[in-house]
Structures are given as C-alpha cells and as structure tokens.
Design a protein around this nucleic acid. Structure first.
Lengths: 200, 200
DNA sequence: GGATACTTGTGAAATTCTTCACAAGCAATG
DNA sequence: CATTGCTTGTGAAGAATTTCACAAGTATCC
C-alpha cells in the first residue's frame, strides 16, 4: 500500500515524503509508517523524510516485484475471465500465461489472446512452464480439489477467490479475496452503526 | 466465515458441530472460535457443541443478513460487469438494482437484465431507491471522486475495488478488496519463504 | 446411577500490535 | 555558525488479540 502511495507521489513529481504525509495518504499513522519501514531498514533522512524514488525501488525489491511472475488462472467464469485482462496484474509484473477450465464448451475459447486450456493439461503444462502462482476462480465446491491439483503440479502460491478456506501443505502460501465476506462486513457495520462497541 | 462453514455442514445434514471441527474447517483454533462466538452470546451446549441450524440463523441475524440490501455498482469495466451477475452477492441477500458508468458508449447497454445508467443520474436515483451499499469498480484515479459522489448521494457503505485508500466521513464504512495487493503478498512470500522470520 | 468421555465458556497469561515520546540528525535562516 | 523548525528511528508503555487451561455442564455406556 505504501508502494502505491509512493508511486502516486512520484507521478506528481514529488522528491521526498514524510512519514506523516505517507500515513495521511495511506490511511494510517506516522508512527505506524516508521515502524513498518524500520522492519526492513533505515530508509529516511531526519528532517527531510523519505526519498520517494529510492523508497519505491527498495519496496519493489522487498516485495519481490523486481522480477516477472508467471501466473495460471484456473476457472474461466465471469470473474476469472475478467482477471485475465486485469491491468493491475500486468502492471506489477504478474504475467498470465495459462488459463484453465474443466468445461469442454469453454476450453479452446480465446480470451485476450490466450486460449483456454483443459484442466487435464494443467500438471503437464506446469511441469514445462513452471508458473509460480495460481489464481483459483472456480465455484466454492470445487475450490479445494482444484487447489489440490495445483499444489500437486508444484505451484507454491495460490490466490483464492472462492469463499472457502483452502487446506494446503505448509510450503504453499494462500491468500484469499473474499468479496461476499467484505459485503457481509458492510451489512454488519450498517446494522450496528448506532450500537456502541461495534465490531471493528 | 463461520457462517459459511456452518452452512456447508448443514448441507451435509450435520446436526451439531464442535468448536474444534468449526476451527479445523475454518482454518483457525477452537479457542478462537469460542472467544469469537462468546462475544455475541452463549450458543453452545457443553459436551455437545453448537447446534448447526440454530447457530446459522443466529449468525445471519448478527451479521445483518436476515434482510435484503440494495446495492449500486459504479464502474462497468470487466470487473464491475462480472460482479453484476456474481452469485455470491444475490445468495446473501445483496440485490444489485443500479449500475453506473461515465462512459456514454457503455450507458444504456444491458447487463444481466439491468441497463447501465449514467453517472449523472446517480444522486437522483439514490434519493428515490435509497440503496445502502455502493460497490466501486472504477480505475484508481477516479475512485476518490466517485466515492465523494456516492457519499453525497447518502450511501453509507462502500465496497472498494480500487487499489487506493478512500477518504470518507466517519458515518461511512469502507471495505476494500485489493486483488493486486494480495498477489504482491504472494510474491513477497515466495521471495522470502526460505528466509527466517518472514512477514505473516 | 456412577464412571467416562466430550465440550463449552471464560478468567488469566502470553503474545502481538500500536501508540507515545524523545534523543539525535538534517536543513534553512539570519 | 548558532538557532530554529522538522523529521526519523526506536525503546518503552499501552492496548488489543490470541492462547492456555480448567471448572462445570452434558451425554453415553454399562
């Protein structure tokens, strides 16, 4: 998130930025900013703040964004298809090079220049292309079994859009995006907004 | 998340569930489950566990899911369009009744039975239809100004898909879904998986 | 009906995260 | 070159969250 704020500051031609300004734009506090950054090193100058360009490249390095990542998208429903051409991925060096679906009516269809491959090919393709990340956008009921296949294919990172927790071996990292859950959080906030001590 | 696990258990015909089983399926610990639920009351029976059906309805009530919520989607790009017909929303009582875009080439197009309305209509429509929630799926650079318009239209809850923090008055609740950020978290995990003390 | 096996709810302890607050460094100013 | 105004980095304090651990309640079995 800091990286995003910093990049925005850079496009405005800003040379330096204080922890206070970074906090303001990022929706946190200056102490938090300084503590967070101090985890990785000492990037600022007292009295001046942080050099925007330098901090951007440091953060890119730390986050692992100074290289390309190969991504498979599994599940070509509405969401999956939308993600294939999502700017936000390619902008950050995430390169989608394979998309998969189990539905024969969808296999072969071309989306954004990429032909949908059949699930059966996944293990074989992965052995050759060695993608690091799989995005799972299949219905909840299939999410776990798809995750198992992805893991078996040697992929160690999963971005899960299904609203169920996935069980994977410890070498695999899973991050989940759960839109319905967030909406439910909003419903909760709306119902309890007047009540004292609402859940954060 | 508990609700989802419970509903799954219910479809299997399960009558009761222990905090241990709930934790296992939900990816947490039994103590956490009990503490979480105890915040809202005492729903279990010692020696038995929780009655699945009862806990489901209690959680639905607590989360504010025992009613319908009216939702506007603002920004009909790939993601926005995909969300219009996203099952996960309607299944939970979130009813999309208006979709908006500023692009005249898109306004009027029908998606899933719903005509895209122009941004200019938003305030007027909202005064009549009184939606509770707005989903913002516009490019980052417009997200804040769209949020301002949504807030001005009297909507108090925002689900933000743009990868920037939104600044809103305190009466408004914002939840963000940040797919690119999660992917970056995966990249970080991959880069640091062998290093000791990786970021959680 | 007593023994056994489970399981909750919850204080207390442990851990993690956030905020405070200030010494120390840098830049601008006169 | 001293003075003033900012700003970082970081120990220490404070707050929040998670885990531990166990008394007490429930069901089952013989």
């Amino acid at each position: 998130m800091y990286l995003r704020v910093l990049e925005h500051a850079a496009t405005r031609g800003q040379q330096t930025i204080s922890s206070d300004a970074l906090a303001e734009d990022g929706g946190t506090t200056s102490a938090q900013v300084r503590k967070d950054l101090s985890l990785f090193g000492s990037f600022g100058k007292r009295g001046r703040g942080y050099a925007v360009a330098e901090l951007v490249s440091r953060l890119r390095e730390i986050l692992g964004l100074s290289r390309e990542w190969k991504v498979y998208i599994v599940g070509v429903g509405k969401i999956g298809a939308a993600l294939v051409s999502y700017r936000g991925f390619s902008e950050r060096g995430f390169h989608v090079l394979g998309i998969y679906d189990s539905n024969p009516a969808i296999v072969g269809r071309v989306i954004d220049g990429l032909a949908v491959r059949s699930m059966g090919q996944l293990a074989h393709d992965a052995a050759r292309e060695r993608p690091e990340i799989a995005v799972i956008t299949v219905p909840s009921e299939y999410a776990q079994s798809v995750a198992d296949r992805v893991v078996a294919a040697g992929i160690d990172a999963i971005l899960n859009f299904a609203p169920v927790p996935l069980h994977v071996p410890p070498r695999v990292t899973v991050k989940s995006v759960n839109m319905a859950l967030e909406l439910e959080g909003l419903a909760y906030a709306l119902v309890h907004r007047d009540a004292a001590g609402a859940l954060p």
